[in-house]
Design a protein around this nucleic acid. Structure first.
Lengths: 206, 206
DNA sequence: GCAATTTCGTGATAATTTGCACAACACTTC
DNA sequence: GAAGTGTTGTGCAAATTATCACGAAATTGC
């Protein structure tokens, strides 16, 4: 695609740009500027211009950016102009809630397999999926070619699940377990942990 | 308490240190080093030492850090050596899942009020709480003195809810709605959005 | 058509953040 | 009790990240 020496921190901002631009799109806004976008997101206009300029020249002087065009470009850059199948491991309360969450589908993410090791959960229906036996996970996931996984098992089981997912060829893991995962180079992990976000704020509270 | 001007980025790492140290504590580990902690978290030993040194001298040369002591210090720094009451706004699927999530209690966070504007939800029981009418939220929250809120309403309602929470005296908001919130200076927001985390990873996938 | 205005893309500069390396100290071993 | 080893806290240097500010291009208004 494009030169791969783009800093992580730049990449990490792009989804927020895309999200905001998609809202604009829905509101019928056809054109925007780095200034307007920055005000909405709460960062400087210069930063947005510099970030985008890493990937190409998407704007027009005096005019700004076409919202539709920029959305399209960002989707290409982020590889979300396609759909991604996802495997979910852990069919407990949290797993259920996530499997039932409608927000993924609207953005091209689709949970297509759910696993658990608890016999009481295996065979259960969640939406139109059936919870499958975790013992078969590696084989089934590898055969499916799925590249993205989510972990919603208890902390003490999470690293073992991550290891299996890696073995199955998974390259990106969204981890809901409250523990740090160690994965090989080339596998990406993002950690979703509300406790950590709360503690980042309580620091500032009197 | 801590009068200094500590960079945000340092503060944002502390909860992860605390989490990891708490796991060590549970495993019966009494002493650790910046090296060991760094290996577990995946950051450099020097960074950990430098981060901690912003707040005091917690270690001993040649010996390392007492896990118990460091956990205690970090809890003090992060203001989590106490309990925090939380108001949850939005009693839909996501709100239900979060209200039922047991993980908060173990870390001193306790959801004590739930609001929604949907008459079909008001009056419903979730655990031992009853969903209350959002119209009364500002008064009830202000009277309660609660400082932390969570937003689990649809995107289009989130900013209005945030405005009300601010009016009610809330100073920290954990936002699950997929939209950027604008809040006055002094109010802290953390955004939990799985879509954004997924997109941060798909960028790197072939 | 031309001046005024807007806004981009970017090189230069400033600020922030990270990493290095070492003195100081503490424990261990012999 | 001295030598050896391990580990902290930190000044300084390096690397990274953000901001500034300006030329160039596009648009608007008269």
């Amino acid at each position: 695609m494009i030169a791969k020496d783009i800093p992580d921190i730049v990449v990490s901002r792009l989804p927020r740009y895309l999200q905001t631009l998609e809202h604009m799109q829905k509101d019928g806004i056809r054109t925007t500027s780095s200034q307007e976008l920055g005000d909405l997101i709460g960062i400087s206009a210069a930063q947005i211009r510099k970030d985008l300029s890493q990937f190409g020249e998407f704007g027009k002087q005096g005019k700004g950016y076409s919202v539709d065009f920029l959305v399209d470009q960002l989707r290409q850059i982020l590889n979300v102009n396609r759909s991604w199948d996802i495997v979910l491991v852990g069919a407990g309360n949290l797993g259920h809630a996530i499997a039932n969450y409608q927000g993924f589908g609207n953005h091209g993410f689709s949970i297509v397999m759910i696993f658990d090791s608890d016999p009481a959960l295996i065979g259960q229906k969640i939406g139109n999926l059936t919870v499958q036996d975790a013992a078969q996970m590696v084989d089934l996931v590898r055969a499916s070619g799925i590249k993205v996984g989510m972990i919603t098992v208890p902390a003490q089981a999470a690293q073992a699940v991550a290891d299996e997912l890696v073995k199955a060829g998974i390259q990106a893991i969204l981890n809901y377990a409250p523990i740090n995962l160690t994965v090989p180079e080339g596998v990406h992990v993002q950690h979703v942990d509300p406790i950590i976000y709360l503690q980042r704020m309580t620091y500032y509270l009197a």
